[in-house]
Nucleic acid binder design. Structure first.
Lengths: 236, 236
DNA sequence: ATTAACTTATTGTTATTAAAAAATAAAAAA
DNA sequence: TTTTTTATTTTTTAATAACAATAAGTTAAT
């Protein structure tokens, strides 16, 4: 077998940005790093790519290891490769972006890894270039959520329209008109009324909906234009 | 200095997808590969990341080497890392996406590298997963051009509105209404009328415009909604 | 038991913006 | 003068955003 006559082979890391939503705030799953350098400091969950695994498989492995979850929404975000981004040695990191339903993850696994859900606006300083990675991920979340019905990935299987509205208000950090919001949402045909109502409420109980998964798959890649133009993020 | 106790360090490649526009078709700059394996077959222009260079610097080096151009529009597209994507050895490739003004590149450098401009619909089979990379790049070009005023990067400094329309028609492979097109375009305030006219024309000469680079930079990251919804790409 | 406070839900109205397409005219060359 | 391309204005239609109005479900306070 031919092998390239190049001397420099590089360490390849995978870092995962895991977003969740607790009904009020967008949260980030962060860990206290358990290896040198920078041991004990906050960082994204990461690991090294194994010789026998594809990139997405590596990302899935890391996310499963931390949350106990499989088959969640994951996409590749960007690869970070500045020469000195890792002081230990040259490491190029492929960053993945995941959305999970915060109530469904395995909280024991999370605790075992010294991980915590932290609100976006309260996130601590992270190691290396992880702050920059998170910044890009927030931009990407806003960008994508304006065009594709990505928000459902962050909600439980049964959800109400006011819940979904609060999620979008958290993503864009801005209030939305509830009347236009629900009209626009219902007109997509993506929601199925389950008949039941949200029980834990001290006022009128909201209708619980679930996703029409077939139409969701059909419509996902179509441009959606869900957010009004004025709400669209200014930076990508 | 600490070094990670991980055994597998991996060869990191950079591949560049270079788009151009000849006034009629979107073209791709492809090379005949001059190293094993797959020597003599068509491929994207690529190379290996050097130990002392950032990813974007590596991409810039490769593009300059091939075209003689600097300071062109480049962005990172995606990283491809399937275990067996390169039969010689495990290689992860960071793919970059570049737009150049086809008439400004150094054609001698291009010829020296056995490179050719090839229309999208006439492109040959490429090595490895380069076909998949090009597919993603075309999707990305459509996606991005619908939202950001990216098209100018493919045109010469002075251009006419009909030229720009032909470019968008080539990107989306669909006819556009010239009346709505020019109205929408002029309303962006991105164009400066240079007063002069396109000389090489056998009918009415079109007005030559140039970019208002200050406004271009301001507006670039804003959502643009340039293409009508019906024209927007169906896949990302 | 009634009311107040709050939330959910739906409908309708108005103003604005965008898309589709008709109409017109001017420039240039054959 | 015919043909082709460029350029602009206008009309019609449709979609979207902003916001008014109304009603109904639920709990807690009176």
């Amino acid at each position: 077998m031919y092998r390239y006559p190049v001397t420099s082979r590089i360490l390849l890391a995978i870092d995962c940005i895991i977003f969740g939503f607790d009904g009020k705030d967008i949260k980030l799953l962060l860990v206290k790093r358990n290896l040198e350098p920078e041991m004990g400091k906050w960082s994204l969950m990461g690991g090294f790519l194994r010789e026998d695994e594809d990139l997405e498989v590596g990302a899935g492995r890391i996310i499963f290891y931390l949350t106990g979850l499989k088959n969640i929404y994951v996409e590749q975000l960007e690869t970070f490769g500045k020469v000195n981004r890792d002081p230990a040695e040259r490491t190029v990191s492929v960053v993945f972006f995941a959305l999970i339903q915060i109530d469904e993850h395995d909280s024991e696994a999370v605790r075992n890894h010294n991980a915590s859900w932290i609100s976006l606006d309260q996130r601590p300083e992270l190691i290396f270039d992880h702050n920059e990675m998170v910044g890009r991920a927030i931009e990407h979340l806003r960008y994508k959520a304006a065009l594709h019905p990505i928000g459902f990935e962050l909600l439980p299987e049964l959800f109400t329209i006011p819940q979904l509205q609060k999620l979008y208000e958290a993503i864009y950090n801005t209030p939305l008109d509830r009347r236009n919001f629900s009209r626009k949402l219902l007109s997509t045909g993506l929601l199925i009324d389950t008949g039941s109502k949200n029980s834990n409420s001290t006022t009128k109980k909201a209708t619980l909906y679930k996703l029409d998964t077939i139409r969701y798959k059909e419509k996902f890649h179509a441009f959606w234009n869900f957010m009004p133009d004025s709400m669209k993020p200014v930076k990508i």
